[in-house]
């Protein structure tokens, strides 16, 4: 891998963010980790960076069930912001849900590329990074 990676974690659960952040920090390839407890805040930051054409995170871990705006609403909003531009960030859904409803919603959309279950495992991160960034 040529460059180090910047991560966003969007999840209303601070325990999960604490865990994922700790796990990501084990890796050499991790450059930075930014966490957002609200989808709206994560969306605002991404929107700002897309509009200002500044560096986007390489990976966004996105939870599904969050109050106010959930993961799929986030994806819809982001899709509108992008307006046919390609998103350079990889969006990984990171959820505790294995519910059919959520898997179907994931399959219908085009922005997120992986559907991962919590808790995230070390070898999962390695294989995801290999798959998308080597």
């Amino acid at each position: 891998m040529s460059e180090k990676l910047d991560f966003f974690i969007i999840d209303d659960s601070d325990v999960n963010n604490y865990y994922t952040e700790d796990l990501l920090n084990e890796f050499e390839f991790t450059n930075s980790i930014t966490t957002f407890l609200k989808a709206t805040e994560g969306l605002a930051e991404l929107t700002k960076r897309i509009q200002e054409k500044t560096k986007l995170p390489d990976v966004v871990f996105l939870d599904i069930r969050m109050p106010e705006m959930d993961g799929f609403e986030f994806i819809e909003e982001l899709d509108e912001v992008l307006d046919d531009q390609e998103l350079t960030s990889k969006i990984f859904i990171l959820t505790s849900s294995k519910h059919r409803r959520d898997v179907e919603s994931f399959e219908k959309q085009k922005i997120a590329c992986e559907f991962l279950n919590k808790p995230l495992e070390k070898n999962e991160i390695i294989s995801m990074v290999d798959k998308h960034f080597s």
Partner: peptide
Amino acid sequence: HDLKTSMIHTVS
């Protein structure tokens, strides 16, 4: 979902 989340937190 809520119970599972709580258990996942425990595991993590």
